[in-house]
Design a protein around this nucleic acid. Structure first.
Length: 169
DNA sequence: CCACGGTGGTAGA
DNA sequence: TCTACCACCGTGG
């Protein structure tokens, strides 16, 4: 993955599970961070950003709160996935097709993007997903209903799946 | 349960 | 380039 320098605007989203941080480029939502103890503060106050981004952030906040509650997200802001490779974007796009309460295996995702043997690589692309929760990488599990892995806290994956009613072994 | 080989994409040297 | 990772998967003990 190449790191293109971009000016990102960071804003906070308060949820019952803590404060997420959302990052916006001029193209749309570019990243989300899980709450962390050192509380990665927003770089700006919402009043001081372009109204376009304020509108995106309202959509992000609402969608994030719903998914964290185990509900369908509703409307998304535009996503800026320009940091990803072509392969990663294909995987992320496939993940967006998984509805709330459903799950697919890494193998099924590989098949869905027409590269049935790129199974391990799909796992790598999941870990590189810059917009967790909204791009639902937590709904990608291992074959046979096993939980699989997660980049950050495995607890988040278990919690989100459980709230959506997905049973894993 | 465990070991192992086949895989494709990515990052780093 | 080459190499060493991997959020995998199926098969075989």
């Amino acid at each position: 993955m190449k790191t293109v320098p971009r000016n990102l605007v960071s804003l906070s989203v308060s949820t019952p599970d803590g404060i997420f941080t959302a990052h916006y480029s001029e193209r749309g939502l570019a990243g989300i961070n899980f709450p962390s103890k050192q509380n990665p503060a927003a770089t700006r106050e919402p009043e001081n950003v372009p109204t376009k981004i304020q509108a995106w952030h309202r959509l992000t906040s609402a969608a994030l709160k719903r998914v964290v509650a185990g509900e369908a997200p509703g409307k998304f802001p535009p996503f800026d996935l320009s940091a990803g490779t072509e392969f990663q974007c294909a995987v992320w796009q496939a993940m967006l097709q998984i509805q709330s309460g459903q799950a697919k295996s890494y193998g099924e995702i590989a098949q869905a993007i027409g590269k049935p043997k790129a199974v391990r690589a799909v796992g790598g692309a999941c870990g590189a997903n810059p917009i967790p929760v909204l791009v639902p990488c937590h709904r990608v599990i291992a074959a046979g209903g096993k939980i699989g892995g997660f980049s950050s806290d495995m607890n988040w994956k278990r919690t989100l799946l459980k709230r959506e009613g997905v049973i894993v072994s």
